[in-house]
Nucleic acid binder design. Structure first.
Length: 244
RNA sequence: GGCACUAGUCAG
């Protein structure tokens, strides 16, 4: 069934969801039982191509075949709803399945992203706390999303607070975390803070990626900070001017 | 018990 799933997934990601659906139909007609992974993969494909009706039909078919949805399945649905701004329905779905399905951080994060997209950061933070309440440890991914949205909304104090909180919770700040916070700081002209973060980053052994360097370079060029410009230029040089 | 493995989160 793994082999089938690789095909189903490939077809879905190539936009051939109808063909993917036919694979499942073909499986059942040959007496091969599609499993939760197969259904989830297809439902994800259907959701991502706007075929919500078909997606819910597949969910029903799955449940009718006595296959219980798992965290992945619920995440796929919740994520689709959230991205359409249907966060209320997404939360309702969670309420229905809580206690039956072991939801994980990714599931809650998907709704959190939905609230972020609506600019409802208070609700997004509520979801972060909901994870903790359910004994789920929010991961770097969750924090990166929040930091990014706070930064984009010019709420750098909130963003910085989360950024500082990460190591205290044992969360590793990766290249995306740093890029996001640097982007935010440069955007509102907090160059000194940006420089300090760069120091911190290098002190912790992280190499700033070229995107981070370039956005910093742009900022420090504007302020005429020659030493920083030179420093950033050197980092870029060592990386060989990659264009990611 | 450990590792690996086919699906999910704005890291476009």
């Amino acid at each position: 069934s793994r082999e089938y799933n690789m095909i189903i997934d490939r077809l879905c990601k190539d936009g051939l969801v109808d063909d993917a659906l036919n694979i499942i139909v073909g499986m059942t007609s040959r007496g091969i039982c599609a499993d939760v992974v197969n259904y989830t993969t297809l439902i994800d494909g259907l959701c991502k191509h706007g075929k919500w009706k078909e997606a819910t039909a597949m969910l029903r078919e799955m449940v009718d075949s006595d296959i219980s949805p798992n965290a992945h399945t619920i995440t796929v649905l919740v994520s689709a709803l959230s991205k359409q701004g249907r966060t209320k329905e997404a939360e309702e779905l969670l309420e229905v399945v809580e206690g039956h399905v072991d939801l994980d951080v990714v599931t809650y994060n998907s709704i959190m992203v939905g609230y972020c997209l609506q600019g409802r950061m208070d609700e997004a933070m509520r979801l972060l706390n909901a994870m903790v309440d359910r004994d789920l440890q929010p991961d770097s991914y969750c924090y990166n999303v929040l930091i990014k949205r706070y930064s984009e909304n010019m709420k750098l104090d909130e963003a910085m607070h989360l950024f500082r909180e990460m190591p205290l919770l044992g969360l590793k700040r990766n290249i995306f975390t740093f890029r996001t916070i640097l982007q935010g700081l440069v955007q509102i002209g907090r160059y000194t803070a940006a420089r300090e973060i760069l120091n911190e980053m290098q002190a912790s052994g992280q190499v700033p990626d070229s995107k981070s360097c370039r956005l910093l370079l742009k900022g420090f060029c504007k302020t005429g900070n020659t030493s920083m410009v030179v420093r950033l230029f050197r980092i870029l040089e060592e990386e060989g001017f990659k264009s990611d």
